Amino acid sequence: MQKIIMSPSRYVQGAGEVGKLPEHVEKFGSSALVLMSGTMMRTKADQLKASFEAAGIKFTPEKFNGECSKVEIARLQEIVKAEGCDVIVGIGGGKTLDTAKATAHYQKLPVVIAPSIASTDAPCSALSVIYTEDGVFDEYLVLPKNPEIVIMDTDIIKTAPARLFISGMGDALATYFEAQATVDSNGTTMSGAHPTRSALALARLCYDILIEDGLKAKLAIEAATCTPAVENVIEANTYLSGVGFESGGLAAAHAIHNGFTVLSECHHMYHGEKVAFGTLVQLIMENRSTEDIEEVIDFCLSVGLPITLAELGCTEPTPEKIMAVAVAAADPGETIHNMPFDVDADSVYAAIMAADALGRLYLCE
């Protein structure tokens, strides 16, 4: 039985690290396409241009168009070819980074990743989540390798909106439960192999850090400060969750997130916010102990993650809408089939409705 553990070649976390990007990038090329989110383009482009050119690296900045779609990836590939770029740099949020990774994959180039937020586990993974131009989940693009380097600049991350940081905790919250389900079912990870004990241990550490430091980190981030708790949660949101999901496995929580992308009223919600609710649904599907479920609900309430459909934007959860979510989540190609029991749309529908009822009960207390 083949087992694989995957991770970026190097993970760097600290204050002011984006200012050191050229010394990392020059190891891989001399002409960089630098894909940036709108915020990073406005606030960092001039500084980066000067530092790249001082290092003798051609700097080709490009603003991310907002969706990690096949259209956007194709657009960027044309720029890479026209400018003669030999390395890709992604600076921004999860979709920006996924797009940079996909572009580098298709052009067979190295990629350096510098998240501006700690909102997902996307930075470390050999995976890009592809959406349609309208923001509906399309497919997972499994890549042959992880990024060469992931750079987490805590000076940038601590000033990002707190909601994004909290969303990252929602994404990370699922890591341990999905990895354990994959182990229990003898399922496969994104690499096509089976989970490793190392990945499960990292996934458990990820969960333990969230429970211990999540609220403390949230309060510090709301004050735009970086404390030891913030440092720990950045690592949990990014590295531990990244390696934990990729080498430990995905299961119901992320499939349910993908299901919710079919509802337009949920499009304004962040990835991790939908995953957090998906985690609660997975625990209902597993009929976890009341103690386990309460710990997750209490955590979500403490940091401000959604535990009801209404909080996700679905204020009128008709049977037709929720069944559409359930059908998408239970698609034969979805990771929900890593659960250690048979899953169909009816069982997913029931778990979503039960999770919502439970969430509403706790909100009323």
Rank of each mutant, 00 (worst) to 15 (best):
I5Y: 02
S7F: 11
S7W: 01
S7T: 09
P8M: 01
P8K: 02
R10M: 13
R10A: 15
Y11N: 10
Y11Q: 06
V12M: 04
Q13V: 09
A15G: 06
G16C: 09
G16K: 03
E17V: 15
E17L: 14
G19M: 07
P22H: 02
P22D: 08
P22V: 01
P22G: 03
E23G: 12
H24K: 08
V25G: 01
V25N: 00
K27V: 09
F28D: 00
F28L: 14
S31D: 04
S31E: 01
S31V: 00
A32N: 13
L33I: 03
L35M: 02
L35T: 06
M36N: 06
M36H: 08
S37H: 05
S37L: 00
S37Y: 08
G38A: 10
G38P: 05
T39H: 11
M40K: 09
M40V: 04
M41S: 13
M41C: 09
M41T: 12
M41A: 11
R42H: 01
K44Q: 13
Q47S: 15
Q47P: 06
K49L: 03
K49E: 14
K49Q: 13
A50D: 06
F52G: 06
E53G: 03
A55Q: 01
I57A: 00
K58V: 02
F59L: 14
F59K: 03
F59M: 08
P61C: 06
P61M: 03
K63C: 08
F64W: 11
N65Q: 13
E67W: 00
C68F: 02
S69V: 02
S69H: 09
V71N: 15
E72G: 04
I73C: 12
A74Q: 13
A74W: 04
L76T: 08
L76F: 14
L76A: 07
L76C: 09
Q77P: 09
E78H: 14
E78F: 11
I79T: 15
V80L: 11
V80F: 12
V80E: 15
V80T: 09
K81A: 15
